[in-house]
């Protein structure tokens, strides 16, 4: 007997192909959103979206027809609002909503086949991750490379491989952790669905709501927080001391120093000046490298300051008490300018 996803799964996971198939089968037309009986769907999508913009996961769960329609309207609203910050935040909170349902399903579902089907539909088909679900416990296993590709993008120390249960090339996680691992991918999937929506005529009823929401939220996302640095972090101080003594810094320390200085707003000329004391200083090479890091040369990618974690593993970290809980040297000693 083949197991299929039921209506409750379509309600929780409306981004799956099966949900799109449902829309196709019903031959639903976007214009139908302008019909009066659809207003509750639109209102529900607005409620959900506003919840997400306030930083909450929308936990209400309705019938699958309602959920699929709400999901579709949410995407249309976000697309129509056209604010990047709204798209990103809603994608993230939609992913967290899915995460909540999926984690519960993988822990509580009694049918192993059903669990495996969910894992196949979401982990394997959408994100190409092979997850093995244990039939008797809530422990999942996945290969070390699959784990690393995702966990290495997380800042929290607990996601480092060393803090995981690892054996014979597999990482063992409980269901919450397994699902958390794909949050970014889920968020990116929803974000790309919004971005890739074809230019369609947005129904008037949705467009007018979108206009209201745009007016309401557009001012809230102007980046106001400017910082000034009161003190350099110890890793940067240490590198500066070595340079000032006229000693050679390893390549990785030069990378750290230059990206840090650029990140706190120093000009390229300022940064080049810092390296003038190096015994092997060559202005042409230094200029090229600093401009490269600033994104003015080569790939035009502006390089970020390496994380504290990275600096620790490269022996460039000289942490003091004030460094506790920082994930990047850039966070050290800064104060908001009001």
């Amino acid at each position: 007997m083949s197991i299929k996803l039921g209506s409750s799964e379509l309600a929780k996971y409306p981004f799956l192909q099966e949900a799109s198939d449902y829309i196709h089968e019903t031959k639903f037309d976007f214009e139908e959103f302008d019909r009066p009986e659809m207003i509750h769907i639109i209102n529900r999508a607005v409620e959900k979206l506003e919840n997400e913009l306030k930083g909450n996961v929308y936990s209400n769960l309705d019938e699958y027809e309602i959920e699929i329609m709400t999901f579709m309207v949410s995407l249309l609203l976000i697309k129509s609002i056209g604010l990047e910050e709204v798209s990103k935040k809603c994608s993230l909170f939609e992913a967290m909503r899915v995460e909540k349902f999926l984690s519960s399903d993988l822990s509580n579902e009694r049918s192993v086949e059903k669990k495996k089907l969910l894992v196949q539909k979401i982990f394997l088909e959408l994100f190409k991750i092979n997850i093995d679900v244990n039939s008797t416990s809530s422990i999942c296993k996945l290969s070390v490379p699959d784990y690393l590709q995702r966990a290495s993008k997380m800042y929290e120390q607990e996601w480092k491989l060393i803090n995981r249960s690892v054996k014979d090339g597999y990482v063992y996680l409980d269901t919450d952790e397994t699902v958390r691992l794909i949050r970014n991918e889920l968020s990116n999937l929803i974000y790309s669905r919004i971005k890739n929506m074809k230019a369609i005529e947005i129904p008037v009823s949705i467009k007018s709501k979108a206009d209201e929401l745009r007016n309401k939220y557009s001012g809230r996302y102007v980046y106001k927080n400017q910082f000034k640095i009161l003190e350099y972090p110890p890793c940067i101080k240490h590198a500066m001391e070595i340079i000032n003594k006229g000693e050679n810094l390893p390549h990785s320390a030069r990378f750290m120093l230059a990206t840090y200085m650029l990140a706190i707003g120093k000009t390229e000329e300022d940064v080049i000046d810092i390296f003038k004391n190096s015994p092997d200083y060559n202005e042409k090479i230094t200029r090229y490298q600093v401009e490269h890091l600033a994104g003015k040369k080569g790939s035009h990618t502006k390089y970020s300051v390496p994380s504290c974690d990275r600096l620790r593993s490269e022996d460039l970290c000289f942490a003091i008490k004030e460094c506790e809980n920082l994930i990047n040297p850039i966070q050290f000693g800064r104060r908001k300018i009001r």
Binding site: P145, L148, S152, K160, L161, V166, D309, S313
Partner: peptide
């Protein structure tokens, strides 16, 4: 990802 292995 390699840095994660390195730390391991």
């Amino acid at each position: 990802s390699r840095a994660n292995v390195t730390d391991y």
